[in-house]
Amino acid sequence: VDLASMEEISEVFQQLMSGSFPDSAAKEGISDINFHVGYRRSRLGILSRRRSKAWSPDTSASLHFVLLRNLDAEMSRFRSGSSLANVNLRDVLESDAMVILVDSTRLAVVGEENPHGTMTNYDGAVESLLTALQRSRARGDPKRFHPIFLFSKFDSVNKKALRRAKIEDVPPGVRETTLRAAYARALLDTNLPKTIAKITNREVQGVRFAPPSYFFSRVATEAATENLRDRVRLLRGDDGGWELDYSADEYLALLERLRTIATEA
């Protein structure tokens, strides 16, 4: 992480390591952040734990993350002609990639009683943002745009929603990209139909959408009780210290994906 952003990111990381999810003060403290990713000098690549301290030259890339909070409210402001409240609109419209978080606890059991699911507003807001992005780019702009869907809280997904979508409890592994795409699409086609239609529409002018990639985030938690919110559960690591119990494989694969996008950009 960039030195300038170290304090903010360390604070939220320390909150997780002390068992709490980031509080509102910590959330407000972060609007954008820079990461520098690369490989340690190793023949085995980023997924290997056997690596030396030295960075391998020519493999690093810098990434600028921009957080767009309360998307619904931001898009209402934008549609009424105001600029976005917290971030530079240009950063958003000229972005190379977008991480679209899908709160897995809100994936609905779409059916006769609930034909549109529970993400209708979010779906509309994401679609509007993609439309704005498309309009802001010159026709035939060669720059590709990379949509990335990240299913957050996937450990707490409603199992009935998975049954209804006719998919297994556990998504295919990070390397099984075709199976993984089919798995994710079974959920997104019913929960974010407008967003998916936008991204997969071949007729779209002005922006070249790369095939989306899909990741699934899990953090082990102790369930909330009457008096306590969800707590992050920690594990004893090999070295005797405490470690977060989360889907590290997914995050490493995502970092690798972002590094590839950055080197092509």
């Binding site: 992480v1 997780l16 993350f65 190379d96 990639a97 977008m98 993400m119 953090v219 977060l244």
Partner: peptide, 26 residues
């Protein structure tokens, strides 16, 4: 430097996502 926008509904885990991305790096 490439720009990556993170979007999500309220309490969908945007900040936790960044913290875990950081955790995966170190």
């Amino acid at each position: 430097m490439p720009h990556i926008v993170i979007i999500g509904d309220r309490d969908s885990g945007k900040t936790t996502f960044l913290a875990l991305l950081y955790a995966a790096q170190v």
